[in-house]
């Protein structure tokens, strides 16, 4: 197990180096000029040139790459061209916002998905099964940006039940310590604040969590159907309602592996792929941070941000794979 873990970790190194080269090449292939974006339509040629020089954009690419990597190895993610702040500092709240959103999206996905899957299998071919699976089918086919817009239209604009954008109330912002607002409000005992935070989380979490929810529901249902073929379950089933909980327990255990798979795969995807959800809900997360950086050609931010997300993604996958082999030694990588 230990040797396997080490081997997998070593395999990460070439991937990460390759990734840094890829990211660096990509961003320098992108046309456009950060100096011009920052200064806008009123910039004079002299000022632009001076700024390009200051930013080191006139250096040869290899020099720029070397400088970047040297800094990176010293733990310095660089400085944003736009805000002139250190990226390792600046990215924290964005990362926290995305992690918080992803967490709640996955929580929604797992709770609803697993329960719906189990019940659907238990009541196979019932109206509940059909409806749940129809919802799951629609769920996996859902364009999240559209879902987000419709949620906003119905719950924020028409019914005015929930806030449509942002992480907290603008008039009563959260006094942030950890950047994780849920934790912040709880440790400060600010329960009105906590309520606000949760209300802000509902719509984007559902939008982001719908696809994993649908996938989990379908996977749980099919693995549950397998379980129910087992003799002891058939016996339990014959005894009636009280035995539901027995099945439920077994089903949960069985659903664990597929759920873990989806959680692993999707969490990585959500971290970077939340761009659309974050754009619609003006969620100050890392996907949107990077997307904005691409539009203003903030090279250091694009570089470090993508590298960071990719690293997290790779690590999550690694953890999932390791967990697998811990749970079920049969599926260990040879």
């Amino acid at each position: 197990m230990f040797a396997y873990t080490v081997r997998r970790l070593i395999m990460l190194i070439p991937v990460l180096i390759g990734m840094s080269i890829l990211v660096f090449s990509i961003i320098h292939l992108i046309p456009g000029d950060p100096a011009k974006t920052l200064l806008g339509e009123k910039a004079s040629p002299e000022v632009l040139e001076k700024m390009r020089e200051d930013l080191g954009l006139n250096d040869p690419l290899l020099v720029q790459y070397k400088n970047y990597m040297v800094n990176l190895l010293q733990g310095d993610l660089g400085t944003s061209i736009k805000t002139k702040r250190s990226i390792s500092e600046e990215i924290k709240p964005y990362l926290a916002a995305t992690v918080e959103l992803t967490f709640f999206a996955m929580l929604f996905a797992v709770i609803v998905g697993v329960n719906a899957g189990i019940i659907a299998a238990w009541k196979q071919n019932s109206w509940f099964d059909y409806i749940a699976m129809l919802i799951a089918l629609i769920g996996v086919s859902m364009p999240v940006f559209w879902l987000g817009l419709m949620e906003q239209y119905i719950f924020a604009q028409k019914l005015q039940w929930l806030p449509s954008i942002g992480r907290d109330s603008i008039l009563n912002p959260i006094n942030s310590i950890t950047n994780f607002y849920i934790i912040d409000t709880v440790i400060q005992g600010d329960f009105d604040g906590l309520k606000q935070i949760l209300k802000h989380l509902i719509l984007p979490s559902i939008a982001l969590g719908t696809i994993p929810m649908a996938i989990i529901a379908r996977m749980t249902r099919s693995s549950m159907l397998e379980v129910m073929k087992a003799d002891y379950i058939r016996t339990a089933r014959a005894k009636g309602v009280a035995q539901f909980f027995l099945v439920y327990k077994h089903a949960l255990k069985n659903a664990f592996i597929p759920v873990l798979t989806v959680v692993g795969l999707q969490t990585g995807l959500l971290l970077g792929g939340a761009v659309l959800t974050e754009t619609i809900f003006a969620w100050p997360g890392v996907g949107k941070y990077l997307y904005d950086a691409i539009s203003v050609r903030d090279y250091p931010v694009i570089q470090s941000g993508i590298l960071m997300i990719a690293t997290i993604f790779v690590i999550i996958n690694l953890i999932v794979d390791l967990l697998y082999s811990a749970i079920d030694p049969r599926i260990r990588y040879q």
């Binding site: 329960n115 019940i119 806030p163 509902i202 979490s205």
Partner: peptide, 29 residues
């Protein structure tokens, strides 16, 4: 019974696992 469990888990997940019914407090702001 199953329907109730389902609805509850939706509500629970929707509210982030803690708060009660959100519909009773319109336009908090």
């Amino acid at each position: 019974f199953l329907a109730i469990i389902f609805v509850l888990s939706v509500a629970l997940a929707g509210c982030g696992g803690g708060t009660t019914d959100t519909t009773t407090k319109p336009s908090e702001q």
